[in-house]
Every structure is written in structure tokens, then in C-alpha cells.
Design a protein around this nucleic acid. Structure first.
Lengths: 278, 278
DNA sequence: TAGCTAAATTGGTATTTACAACAAAAATGC
DNA sequence: GCATTTTTGTTGTAAATACCAATTTAGCTA
């Protein structure tokens, strides 16, 4: 390892700039540092290889800040599924309701959907990505106190659950690390306590999980299936699981990508296939 | 009324997409909608005119939400000043202290500096950007409850101030919209209340402001100068202001870009013999 | 239905960016 | 000191994008 302040310093400053603006142009950086565009290009390629930023034509864009560390291939692959789940879940709400939203990637998607719908809600959450998503909407946003966990992008702990008990919601949306006949499971003990509190403070509770969570047995059981009023997912669970859910009185909503597509772009493209070579 | 779903629908969807990813390419949008790149180009230009997004070569980037609109090239000039201020302010802390950090761009810079320093602190803040900056550090992070304000990227309100009174900090760092002989000023009433609480719950209070805040008279006076133990800024205030500060017992720390640069280079090559770092 | 108007496409050209190979310069190691 | 490695600059070419203007298409109105 050599000590070259030149390149490293540029790299650090590029990332610094990208914390304040989502996009920088190569020409801008080149003139700022007094180096050639080629050098900047190489810098950006290197940083892109380290997954610290994303390349764009003529520049670079900052990585989305929601939840950074755990974006593995599997997570990325199910992005569309989660959108579909969120879209379906959003329909369970009515204007004016008080809703509690758990921290998680799928629940964050739900928040974006709710913001897009434009319904005026009162949202209580422990997740900053959720708050950020809803920020521009007409809804009122109440955030919980607690110890900040960067991995989850939210707050947890005794303060969080204490604060939540002051409220009463019409409906709660929670996520989970696993779903088995035994109940709802999660890897994070603090998160589990928050989920239990959300469940106890809401009239109805819906679980949002994609199919990769089925039969995942992890650290801690959050609650039995019977606490749920419904689950929203992207594929039908196994027959055994479905029976269990039915017995526990849990409604199962299957979200399909077609539904969201047809709803969003009611009239997308004609049969004229265009040569989209990309 | 308007029965023109074509263009408007595209516009809405483009903005929708930009909420999920900070950058979209024209070619991507063109193939997605089944239209020509020219059409997308016009769409982006129109949306850019409405200031709903920013153009980039070959695509568009989402507007940053947390921070104020004008983050253009000129604004980036003050980024360096804020970095210097934050760097100087960070030296006022000692390991193990309890510190309260206000919401704001300069205080967010401070948080990044503290995280880089690696000191183990207990940080109490109402700002999500601050929390996120410190997230990877060894510090404990406590976040306040309250109503989420997207523009500031933090929480405010009665819940926030109530929660803060439960704590006692060694030192508080606050920002402001203006600084005059009358005292500290801010445009946001809720933010002003949070600042007052931070001041009252800390042994010492330091104000972090760049020189553009001097003589800015805005909505509300947060507090008189006398509540401060010091200010950290990038240029010396006017003589009249300096006298006032001195009379009020406020220490003035001037942060220079040279200081931070020399600190960086010293860190980079400290094994070599002491060379004159101009 | 015809005509009007906004929107979308098409074609052509100028500009910008990307990519790769190589040269120059600086730093590093011996 | 000299060779080696790393970094940066330069150049030429290909590709992608932007811009402009004319034409076609589609939606709407009278």
C-alpha cells in the first residue's frame, strides 16, 4: 500500500461532493481539481468498482442513501416484487387513517406508494427512509425516538417502544425476516420488540413479506400468526402454510407485477416493437 | 378536465422513477415508454423548467430532498468553508463526552468529521443526516421523536423538546440562519425552540455559522449572544460584531481551509521528517 | 367530417463523452 | 543514481447524446 495523497484525496472529495448533490459532471470535477477528464473518469471507475457511487454518462451519481450495507443480489432481484407488494398494501388504507409503519425495505416501498397516492394520513414510524419517502406528501409524520441503527435506518430500543405506546393506530404494516407456521420471525431483537409494540397498538396488522422470507427460520419469534389480520406477498405460500394462515384467520393478498403495471401505465406501448438495444 | 394522459402520465412516471433511483437515462425511459429519445428529452426539459428534477447529460437526476434547492456549482464553494468550520469545531470535543447536535448543513458536516475522527461519543440529535453521518462510528446515537420536516431532514415540535429535556450534555453544536448583535436568528420557529432546548440542556454551546450568515436578520430571535460559549466560523465578523461577541463572553474560532489541508497532509506523511507545510 | 393544434417522429448534423493505447511525468524502491 | 511502478496526460476513434427543423401523427373542436 502506497501513500498517494493525490488520488485518495480526490476520491474522498468526490464522495464528499456527492453527499450534497446527487450528481456531478466529469467536466466539473476536472476543472475543480485541475486535472484531465480522463483522470476523473478513472477515479469514478475506481470508486464505482468499490461500489461507493454509480456511474452515469458524463458524470456520477450518489448511491441511494436509504439502506446501504445490505444490498446483495437477492435484495436487488426482488425490488419489483416489493413494489408490487407495496402497491397492493397501499390499497388497504383509507384517507385520514392513522397508520404505523415498521422499518424495512418493503415498508419503505409502501411509504413511497402512499406518498404517491396523495392520501392524507397520520403516519407513525421508527424508520427514516419511511419518513423521507412520505415527506413530500400531505400526511403528518411522527417519528419515534430511540437508538439509531444505521443498518436498519431507524431507531430502536426502550425509548422507541415507550413512545409508541402513547399512540393508537387504525392499521400497522410490519416486515419480517422470516415467516413460518410458528409465526413471524426476525433477526433483530430490538426490531422484534418494536414490531410487537406496533402490533399491540393497532387495530389491524398486516405483514409485508416477499416469497424469499417463506420458511426462513431465524433468531427470534416476534409473534404467532394469529396476531395478523393479513399478509401481503408476491407468491402464494406452500399449501401447509396457507392452511395455517387460514386457520389463524389471516387473509392472504398476492401482489402481481401485472397489477401494478396495468394500474400505473394503463396504456404503455402499442404492438410496435421498438429496437431498444440496451 | 384535461384528457391528455400521454405526456402528463409520462411526466408523473418519470418523477416516480426518480424517487427510487437518483438517476435515469434517456435511453432507458425511451424504451420503457416506447417513445423516442427526443420525446423524453422534451419531457425532461419541461420537468426541469418546473424545477421538479435536474438535467444531466444523457438523463436526469432527482432533486435532493433534504437540503435546500440551490446546490449548484457556486454553492459548492461554501462546502469547503463548512468543512473547515466542522473540522475546527470537532477539536472542541473530547472522547466520551455527551454532545447534542442541531439539524443543519454545517452541523451535518461536523457529524462526518466526528465520525472520521473515530472518537467514541454519545450523540443526541434531531437530524437524520447527522445520525446517518455518525452511523458507522463508534458513537452511540440517540434520536429525538417529533414531527418530521423533510426540508430540514429532522424532527421538531413539542415532543422533540420534551424528549431533549431528559438529557444533559457536555456540549451542544447549533446552527442558525443569521447572526447579529441582537443574537442568534432562525427562519424556522420549531427549529428555534429545539435550539433553545439544546442550549438549556448543555454545559457549553457553540454556534457554527459561515460568513454568509453575518448580519442576516430573519424571522425569529433564538437567543441572545450571551448564551453562547463560542462561535466557529470561516471569516472574522465585523468589528462591531466582534466587540459585541467579546462583551458577551463568546470565544470566536476562525476556521481556515489551510488548517484542514495541512492537517490532512500531516496525517498523510507523518513518518517523514518535519517538512514545512505552508 | 374537416380542420386545427399539440405532440411525436424522423433525419441530419454538431457536440460531448467513452474507450483504449500510448507517452510523459512523478513517485517509489534498490 | 537508475530502474520500476504508479499515476496522469495525450491522442485518435467510436459511440452516445444534443440540437434543429421539417414532417407525420393523433387528439380535439366546431
Amino acid at each position: 500500500m502506497s501513500r498517494k495523497p493525490r488520488k485518495d484525496e480526490r476520491h474522498a472529495q468526490i464522495l464528499e461532493v456527492l453527499r450534497y448533490t446527487p450528481h456531478v459532471r466529469i467536466a466539473t470535477l476536472a476543472s475543480r481539481f485541475g486535472v484531465t477528464a480522463e483522470t476523473i473518469r478513472r477515479d469514478l471507475d475506481a470508486l464505482s468498482d468499490q461500489e461507493l457511487l454509480d456511474r452515469a454518462h458524463g458524470g456520477a451519481v450518489a448511491r441511494p442513501m436509504g439502506i446501504q450495507p445490505p444490498i446483495d443480489e437477492r435484495e436487488q432481484a426482488t425490488v419489483d416484487e416489493r413494489r408490487a407488494i407495496a402497491h397492493t398494501a397501499a390499497r388497504l388504507l383509507e384517507p385520514g387513517q392513522v397508520v404505523m409503519i415498521d422499518a424495512g425495505s418493503t415498508t419503505t416501498q409502501l411509504a413511497w406508494q402512499l406518498a404517491a397516492n396523495g392520501q392524507a394520513l397520520t403516519v407513525i414510524t421508527n424508520s427514516y427512509p419511511v419518513a423521507r419517502a412520505m415527506a413530500s406528501s400531505a400526511s403528518r409524520l411522527i417519528l419515534c425516538p430511540g437508538d439509531f441503527n444505521a443498518r436498519e435506518g431507524g431507531v430502536f430500543g426502550q425509548d422507541t417502544t415507550d413512545y409508541l405506546t402513547r399512540f393508537h393506530a387504525n392499521i400497522a404494516f410490519i416486515g419480517a425476516s422470516g415467516l413460518t407456521p410458528e409465526g413471524i420471525l426476525d433477526v433483530n431483537r430490538d426490531a422484534a420488540w418494536v414490531k410487537r409494540t406496533l402490533i399491540s397498538r393497532s387495530e389491524r396488522t398486516y405483514l409485508l413479506v416477499d416469497h424469499t422470507k417463506f420458511a426462513q427460520t431465524v433468531l427470534e419469534r416476534v409473534a404467532p400468526l394469529s396476531v395478523l389480520d393479513g399478509i401481503v406477498t408476491d407468491r402464494a405460500p406452500s399449501d401447509a402454510m396457507t392452511q395455517r394462515l387460514e386457520r389463524a384467520g389471516v387473509a392472504v393478498h398476492i401482489a402481481t407485477l401485472e397489477a401494478i403495471d396495468s394500474a400505473l401505465s394503463a396504456r404503455a406501448s402499442d404492438t410496435t416493437a421498438r429496437e431498444d438495444t440496451a
